[in-house]
Design a protein around this nucleic acid. Structure first.
Lengths: 347, 347
DNA sequence: GGCGAAATGAGGTGCGTACCTCAAAAACGC
DNA sequence: GCGTTTTTGAGGTACGCACCTCATTTCGCC
């Protein structure tokens, strides 16, 4: 049997009321008594039963996820994953809302948080001063804050939920180098925007590995696709026209469809090594057909669940299991694609 | 406010006692009444508060993990991961014991389960008739059973916690083929035993990919290392003596140390592509030094937590989130090694 | 030593659920 | 319509904790 508050009272030689005052940091207890109670707690190894505490407290956790309103397949999948994770948390008195904001205008994001009283927020947003301020103000109000997918290392967030994008770029680099097997050539690099933190990191990691280990490959200047297939196709065509044939393309952003379509149209499909990010219906098909050679993926379900766990732990003042919250950099090849998840509940 | 059992009673026009009987499948309720209650539950969207339920139930879940007593680094890490996961579950009234048994003698394993009353078991064991019987008898006693790492598809287990070893073998095959970049050659394959289910699957997957996509590679007959470095070194030397130089080695088993040591001694380190399994201190070092080119890994923390979640869900009669329980086939390269986890609590 | 203030004790109630008992009501068989 | 069995209702207790009130004790201070 785990020790309870009554055991603390007996062990410390005080009453239940005093133990309660100490446990919940209520005033009116002498320093000396507080120490006696804490000693007793340490001695008998008491751990608060959070479930029972929350039950008594009638506590409801309010969490908000803020995501860009773009319609990329990755974001769609992420939203679905958050909904699913939230569904699993309702039996644990957590309430999750998703707010979306236009990427161009993070001001809307700031407004969305005004006046709400909530316990935690997971924010996927560009690294702008407004957002940094928003995070700071949330923290000041005692809200747990996690950044999602793209970090804000200079903001006051408690935790970053996402992959190490530098390492992801390095991984892409080594796959590109090894898959090309020593053949020299140029490599095009597609990012969403050269201002996005995750894109910068991926690019840095990619270049570093190429320079260190595959000097025969020449990475070209980043081209910006803004996570849009049309736009990506356009800039890639321009890039190829300017630089001539490439041996590989590293798509660090969304909009991979623009790349495969362009290569297909130019008769280069399967002859250019393509490394892309994020497992979506399209990249899955492209992997299966051989149009893409590898995908660097992050599990959206893991992202969603990890964010909720981290925020919950923060609010409860609990520690997290770092190993459980480390989002893995997954390498997806045709051969290790997971079976398609059936979406939605069966009838 | 979430609806409670009282709301169900009011909505269904029955008493609390009847709702309770229905919810907990107690006898003595007419079919018609059961339907009325369930309809009311569906109508008001009631979800049982598991925290409160467990509190009232005063239930303690007893789980057992059965593992071979071998001292491989993988098993050590797995045991540590189980301990850590169990630690996290004590606040959810779960109690976990690990029992080990000698691989040669699964009879000991069977005895270890005699007379215990427990709720769930996770079993990592070879596919023998004794073990299959053991699983069947456990199931008959109402114990939830999961197989761990190595499956027992013909046994009555509820769930398999581990990677798809066929796909893992395929992944190893494609990495081998692509890393060798079209160079022809022989490939040695090390397994622990040609009788182990996971080894058979890996071998099948590996061979299939080589045959389909890399006909220039010739896989040699499996050599058995029995998860032991010494033994592995011995059989690998014999294999190389017999077959001449190889382009690659696929180590589907533990005992990778025997392979790197042998290659090192023969002056072949870095000149033979090595694909190994499981991220251990040794394979991590070998990856960093370039002695191994890639490691196919399964996250031991995920294995442990998933097993516990699956067993818990089974006992509670809840569904699982399949996406969360799918153990990923991770591809570890030097470039995406996770930072070393600090072991043990900090002082 | 007496005073006011601070600290502590005793005890109650409720959170949402499980599980129990006993009485009352309804359904059933004849 | 009777007796019997089955079904249902009413109510209580418990789980571990939070939070409240009011009485009582202890402390610090002059």
């Amino acid at each position: 049997m785990r020790p309870t508050v009554n055991d603390i009272a007996r062990e410390a030689g005080v009453s239940l009321a005093t133990v309660d005052r100490v446990l919940n940091a209520r005033p009116g207890v002498r320093e000396k008594t507080i120490r006696a109670v804490n000693d007793a707690i340490a001695r008998i190894g008491y751990v608060r039963d959070v479930a029972a505490a929350n039950l008594a407290r009638q506590r409801v956790y309010r969490f908000v996820f803020a995501l860009p309103d773009a319609g990329s397949q990755f974001l769609l999948a992420l939203r679905a994953a958050i909904d699913e994770a939230a569904q699993g948390m309702i039996s644990e008195r957590s309430e999750v809302r998703i707010v979306t904001y236009p990427l161009r205008d993070p001001h809307v994001l700031v407004e969305a948080f005004a006046g709400r009283n909530l316990d935690g927020a997971a924010i996927m947003a560009p690294e702008t001063p407004e957002v940094r301020d928003l995070i700071l103000r949330l923290k000041e109000k005692g809200v747990a804050v996690a950044t999602l997918v793209s970090d804000q290392p200079h903001a006051a967030r408690d935790h970053f939920v996402g992959i190490d994008n530098l390492a992801a770029g390095r991984t892409a680099g080594v796959l590109m180098g090894r898959f090309l097997g020593g053949r020299p050539g140029k490599v095009a690099v597609v990012v969403s925007s050269i201002l996005a933190r995750d894109m910068v990191d991926r690019r840095l990691g990619f270049d570093a590995v190429l320079a260190e280990r595959f000097p025969e490959l020449e990475p070209l200047a980043s081209i910006e696709g803004h996570d849009d297939a049309e736009q990506t196709a356009r800039v890639l065509r321009a890039c190829l026209a300017e630089n001539g044939p490439v041996a590989g393309v590293y798509v660090a952003a969304a909009g991979t469809r623009g790349v495969t379509a362009t290569l297909e149209a130019m008769g280069l499909a399967g002859r250019v090594t393509v490394i892309a990010h994020d497992l979506t219906p399209h990249t899955r098909l492209a992997l299966e057909s051989g149009a893409i050679d590898a995908v660097i993926a992050q599990d959206v379900g893991h992202l969603a669940r990890s964010a909720l766990r981290v925020l919950r732990a923060r609010v409860d003042g609990r520690d997290i299991l770092p190993a459980q919250e480390r989002i893995r950099i997954e390498i997806m090849l045709r051969e290790n694609l997971p079976p398609v998840a059936d979406s939605g509940p069966s009838p």
